[in-house]
Nucleic acid binder design. Structure first.
Lengths: 207, 207
DNA sequence: CTCTTAGTATACCATTCGGTATATGTTACG
DNA sequence: CGTAACATATACCGAATGGTATACTAAGAG
């Protein structure tokens, strides 16, 4: 790494960092290139030296952060043996990741659930699908090994991901996600998913 | 109703109808006033005769449709006695409402979860809060009357609403929401919420 | 020493945005 | 009949958009 290209990497980094802040706050469409330039203290030709256009900058941003979180998540799940613990690890890890830098989930959810942007469309689809498949696998294991009652693993994954992601989505928009996305909440979600909310009276399945 | 004001109501209606289609597809920011004019076959001064500005048109649109769905939902819940049936009615009713016109939930979720739009901010907050409170009440009843095991009713409502709303949000973006948001899915969600996913082995609470 | 990299500053482009102005027309109601 | 409601057509506004062009510079690399 030469001094020259090292400095270049730093400006590139500054562009990504500042655009993360702005995109996550105002969204892709409402964030002007000039806003980013001002925040990163860079002139317009410089931005177009590092990135082909606005969409490329955005895409680079998404892919970097999604890759990060995906790796972390996979490792955390694999470190656990039982399905219950895998799900708990998935939840707490997702919560922690959100609390560490709420800009990231905020950008993701906002882009995924917000208005369709033609230039960006489909960028997130493959990435979210990958994360979903991770949980489907866990559910399949759970059914196979007798931890979960036999049912559609895709349905279970959808329901569970909903219970995890919706709170992240909601609270990452608030001022203090850390106040809400606690380990206690993670635990409560997993427990509810596994055991349900109803009072269980003499409902025995075993012999 | 005079003939005159009746024709006026029809143009107003046409503006709302076409803007619903466009806003739900492209979102508020990306939908230009000119797009709406072209679709509704109306000139610009006419729009500004009926609505003060773009934001007012949008707000009128939101409030109309949210009011509709809210009334329907409250009535459906009240028509049921047990908590289990209330939750099932809430879910199926929400699904049906989405299938009847996916543009509506699509607009709602997109606006709520999408990028913050200063002119619109807070319009949906009170409305979604109202819907949430509806479910909190049901949970409180369920705990009080011994149908649900004692726990935080707000947490239960959050989890349940997540399981219902996230699929609506996801599938209202697809081409055929009716294929996915079936009564069977509604039933499965309620059952999962009440009974959980784990195999229940000799887990008796009663005497 | 020269060439390339990574930048700056400034100016400009066409297009679109939400919104307004003005002037004209139709038509139903009092 | 006259007036007010509801509409048309056309033209315009300032501001902002994403993106480009030109000219110039600092400095490390070969």
């Amino acid at each position: 790494m030469s001094v020259r290209s090292d400095a270049a990497a730093k400006t590139r980094e500054r562009l990504l960092e500042e655009s993360l802040t702005l995109f996550s706050q105002r969204g892709y469409a409402a964030t002007g290139i000039r806003d980013i330039l001002k925040a990163a203290k860079v002139t317009q030709p410089t931005l177009y030296y590092h990135f082909a256009d606005k969409a490329s900058l955005f895409q680079a941003l998404i892919e970097r952060h999604y890759g990060e979180s995906q790796e972390q998540l996979t490792a955390t799940i694999d470190s656990q043996a039982s399905v219950a613990n895998k799900l708990l690890a998935f939840t707490t890890s997702s919560f922690e990741y959100c609390c560490a830098d709420p800009r990231v989930p905020r950008l993701m959810f906002q882009t995924y659930f917000g208005a369709t942007i033609p230039e960006i469309d489909g960028v997130l689809d493959k990435l979210t699908e990958k994360r979903f498949r991770l949980i489907v696998k866990v559910m399949e294991q759970g059914i196979q090994f007798g931890e979960l009652s036999p049912s559609d693993p895709e349905f279970l994954a959808l329901a569970f991901c909903s219970m995890v992601d919706q709170p992240i989505n909601l609270f990452s928009r608030k001022s203090r996600p850390k106040k809400y996305l606690t380990p206690e909440l993670a635990h409560a979600i997993v427990k509810l998913f596994l055991s349900g909310a109803s009072i269980r009276t003499k409902n025995v399945t075993g012999p």
